[in-house]
Write a protein that binds this DNA or RNA. Structure first.
Lengths: 137, 137
DNA sequence: CGGGATCCCGACGGATACTG
DNA sequence: CAGTATCCGTCGGGATCCCG
């Protein structure tokens, strides 16, 4: 259990800022996080992942997995059988990433209702949701 | 409310999955995380944030702050002075979110080089970075 | 100073068809 | 099964102008 720092010193922000922005641009897309989370449970093959993710297109799953592989988060193992079989598995780096990601996931799970309530309250006050914002699911 | 588990069983993934996807769609945009991180240091006014974030447009900062306000992560305080002054501050929920976010930020900062090395190694093997659908740039 | 209103573009990502 | 190759719509988000 890593002691999390309660406060970020202002002086360190700029540098830390870029790192966060970078990593977020990488894993902040629509599927990466959930792929990592699923592979965190066990190694899976392509079609398993596709079914598990529910809604991902084949193209995006391929792209997502390739990029995760490129960044060193997953390994791709091809079994030259018929029919072909490809396994995806988290690397050490992938498991390291899983820790903070799982924490965020746990937070999201635990605090979902608080966000929903705040949102509903705001909409009552303001008369409607904010235009132009996060992607819808 | 279920007790938290270190490992998420595969059976619970779908539910947890949606929560993560939702929260990530919300804060996974280009600026939200860094706004929260900056406000985690101290309360700031609009133009302070704008300067601190380096590169954010006025429109996106406004939109980001509105949505964060809507979701209950920040408060917006207008001082009816001349010139006007608007302060943004994290709510309790915002500080709660800051914890896992800061952990992720710390991870990003600490592991930046590992990702860069993996990426460089992959590009050497494959002959170039990934483009769409696994092609090379 | 802190926005709101518009215009616009490029990417992200879905649908579909084809292949080894 | 596990991809590749295309086409194409959506919208995130930057630029610009205006206003109280």
């Amino acid at each position: 259990m890593k002691p999390r720092r309660p406060r970020v010193p202002a002086a360190e922000m700029p540098d830390s800022c870029r790192a966060v922005t970078e990593i977020l641009n990488r894993i902040g897309d629509k599927w990466s996080i959930n792929v990592v989370r699923h592979l965190g449970v066990r190694k899976m093959r392509f079609s398993e992942l596709r079914r598990a993710l529910d809604g991902v297109s084949q193209k995006m799953l391929t792209t997502t997995l390739r990029t995760l592989e490129r960044d060193g988060f997953v390994t791709r193992t091809v079994h030259p059988t018929i029919p072909p079989r490809v396994d995806y598995e988290l690397t050490r780096l992938g498991y390291d990433l899983l820790a903070p990601v799982a924490a965020l996931g746990q937070w999201a799970h635990d605090n979902r209702s608080r966000v929903e309530e705040a949102r509903a309250a705001f909409d009552r006050r303001a008369g409607g949701p904010v235009r132009k914002a996060g992607r819808r699911v």
